[in-house]
Design a protein around this nucleic acid. Structure first.
Lengths: 188, 188
DNA sequence: CGTGCACTTGATTGAAGTCAAGCGCTGTGG
DNA sequence: CCACAGCGCTTGACTTCAATCAAGTGCACG
């Protein structure tokens, strides 16, 4: 649980008494590669912390699979679209490597936030960073070419190419697999 | 100040003692049409509440003007990009009608959030709704045609066409003025 | 009565999607 | 041990949506 605690403290420090209450509502999962952690069961209202491994959040939209997020070691991640009841049907999480991760239910998080000011603050900061990421991604989709988005991704997550199939990366970048392939061939 | 209080209470109720402290840091502005409220002065880290009127937040990106948001009566609005120090240079706010509005500095908001749990919660909820909006908009940009985005806007803000020049609406929708014009001519 | 602004219309271009075929592994059954 | 099936990725031809560039219209106001 050390890595989780560290990551939390980095966002916003928690006094001991509420830290214990908070940590107790996280669930640990140790799963193999290609494991489907969540599947269309309506319980997508969770926040995750990936201690080690690679995971992918995706959902279906008009029979197409959309990769909403790819998380790697020591990242928090959530399906923004379903954490806040705008639930797209069919949310799923799927590991791409053997992974260890923690999850917390939204309801538990909110209950503790009501009870403890520092947890409310932590939550606010987490939502804020999600918002910033969301804006950056929107900006990227709106104003950058697929080429630039790809280069930005390589920059932000070096090594992702080795660990994640291109088809998922393409979907995450919002382009087709063919387009991604062409981007990769034109620039070395 | 009644409309502001009402709008705040609707998001998250505030006990009297912190409500007074909170309200005291809001600034009132009563400005004519075509008034530039903020202009490239680096003080874009503000949240606004538009009591009455129409306002537009925009910034410059490679010499082009990007309309980030158009707010109408009784809406909160902020430049997400600059409220959280990802500051794009040259943020500006501009009224499109005579308007009455309130503003609060980010620093004041944060200070009071630290002091009062209910204000922290209010802030968290506001950031959360921004995040949801941001996601919806991203989704819209990524998966919908310009046509569909336009129709969605008409739905969400009927009357906006009468009150806001098409060039701003086009920029807000992420298309050129010409494209918007064609969209409008093809469908009634 | 022009000058400019808000918008429209037309012609051309470009980025990415779609459909379709092909290539090179890897793993499994005969 | 080979053969072929399937997956992951590439390549090619064609289409589509929206950007760009370039005129043109019509109205508002000084």
């Amino acid at each position: 649980m050390d890595l989780l605690i560290q990551a939390l403290e980095k966002i916003s420090p928690l006094p001991d008494e509420c830290r214990d209450a908070f940590l107790s509502v996280w669930q640990y999962h140790d799963v193999p590669k290609d494991h489907t952690l969540l599947r269309e069961n309506g319980i997508g209202d969770q926040l995750f912390f990936l201690e080690k491994g690679v995971a992918r959040i995706y959902y279906h939209k008009n029979d197409k699979e959309i990769t909403e997020w790819i998380a790697m070691d020591r990242q928090f991640f959530l399906s923004i679209t379903s954490f806040f009841e705008r639930t797209p049907s069919h949310l799923a999480i799927h590991t791409l490597e053997p992974s260890q991760l923690y999850s917390i239910r939204q309801a538990d998080f909110l209950r503790l936030a009501d009870q403890f000011h520092p947890i409310e603050k932590l939550l606010r900061k987490m939502v804020t960073s999600s918002l910033i990421l969301s804006q950056q991604r929107m900006d990227s989709i709106q104003f950058e070419s697929a080429q630039q988005r790809y280069e930005r991704l390589l920059d932000a997550s070096p090594g992702i190419i080795q660990r994640v199939p291109l088809s998922y990366i393409a979907s995450f970048l919002g382009v087709t697999l063919e387009t991604l392939s062409r981007i990769r061939s034109h620039r070395h």
